[in-house]
């Protein structure tokens, strides 16, 4: 196994131009550390599957400078240490689950004894022990996906590429697959996850890269990306009087001078960033305002002003940026509100 903190995938520049001068990948550069779950995210047609296929020699790259497990991209022998669950994969319908996973393992050079042993173990792990001698043509999509996951692990891989592994799997199955991925990480395997499901990626990925039109537009540790755009939510409560305090607080958080004109009407809603913030009237007759989405610079003066005006600070909660928000910010054109068309263009 590759030691922790070492990159198992280091791409300096990977490009793929299809015929017709269509750029599917353009100068992709990314790094995946050993033993981490790496998420490759992006809208449809961004080039996620193409990148994985380039790494696994299914697609021939136009340019591929980089290494996987210490060997140049495209080195066939390296693939003996790599597992892969393709998107919408199909197992031969005339094979049983056991035969199907053993067949794929044999193609990876796994010997017969090991194949027999691991097939039973892994099919048990994915919940198909009772079904392992049934033909896969009677399997549901979720069961086929589980069988595919078992097949991807048959050669005891150091890196496992999973392209939409929870596609077609029911919610219970999704949780089980998520647990399986976490277990892979505990075993020291690197998981390279292609997914549209940002919520899932957010829950389990250590690092992510966002691919748009064949380019990596963002990559980093999940924590860092979430902190990068983090906001604060301030909740303040006042008694019946103190209109000026409200005004001051509102002004300090950027509401604007016109708010002060509300005078003593503390129970009125306040305009805040184009919206009306209505207070909640608590049981003891006090009014509670919530100022959400404050950046770090605005939160501190607001806090000070609220305190100075005798306001009761209920909470100041740091709101981590959700992956979906980050993704939408990156992917969606702010002017049109639409995702870019597939491919990196010509």
């Amino acid at each position: 196994m590759v030691s922790q903190n070492q990159n198992v995938i280091s791409l300096e520049s990977v490009s793929k131009v299809y015929s017709g001068n269509t750029h599917a990948l353009r100068d992709v550069s990314l790094h995946v550390g050993a033993g981490e779950i790496f998420g490759l995210l992006g809208p449809n047609g961004a080039g996620k599957s193409t990148l994985v296929k380039v790494l696994l020699t299914v697609v021939k790259p136009t340019v591929a400078r980089g290494e996987m497990l210490g060997k140049p991209i495209g080195d066939k022998k390296t693939l003996a240490r790599v597992g892969y669950l393709p998107e919408q994969h199909r197992l031969a319908p005339y094979l049983t689950a056991r035969q199907a996973v053993e067949f794929l393992a044999a193609l990876s050079g796994v010997d017969r004894v090991t194949r027999k042993k691991r097939a039973a173990e892994l099919l048990d792990r994915v919940g198909l022990l009772k079904w392992m001698d049934r033909r896969v043509n009677v399997f549901s999509k979720g069961m086929r996906q589980r069988a595919g996951l078992a097949a991807a692990l048959m050669n005891d891989p150091q890196i496992v590429f999973l392209d939409e592994p929870t596609d077609g799997v029911d919610p219970v199955g999704r949780v089980e697959i998520r647990d399986l991925l976490l277990q892979m990480r505990r075993e020291g395997r690197t998981v390279f996850l292609n997914s549209h499901l940002l919520g899932e990626a957010e829950q389990i990925c250590d690092r992510v890269a966002i691919l748009v039109q064949g380019r990596v537009v963002k990559q980093g540790r999940m924590d860092d990306l979430q902190k990068e755009g983090s906001r604060q939510e301030l909740t303040v409560r006042w008694g019946g009087s103190g209109a000026s305090a409200v005004a001051n607080t509102a002004m300090s958080v950027g509401v604007g001078a016109e708010v002060a004109a509300h005078g003593a009407a503390t129970a009125r809603s306040l305009p805040f960033r184009g919206m009306q913030i209505a207070p909640t009237v608590t049981a003891d007759g006090k009014h509670q305002y919530v100022f959400a989405d404050l950046d770090a610079a605005a939160a501190q003066p607001a806090l000070d002003a609220a305190r100075a005006a005798g306001g009761e600070i209920i909470s100041l909660i740091p709101m981590r940026q959700r992956l979906e928000e980050l993704f939408m910010k990156i992917v969606v054109d702010p002017l049109t509100g639409k995702a870019p068309p597939p491919g990196a263009g010509s």
Partner: peptide, 15 residues
């Protein structure tokens, strides 16, 4: 060579 099968075949340490 159909989609969903070929990926499983080609991603192996076999020319």
């Amino acid at each position: 060579v159909s989609s969903g099968v070929v990926e499983n075949m080609l991603s192996r340490p076999l020319p």
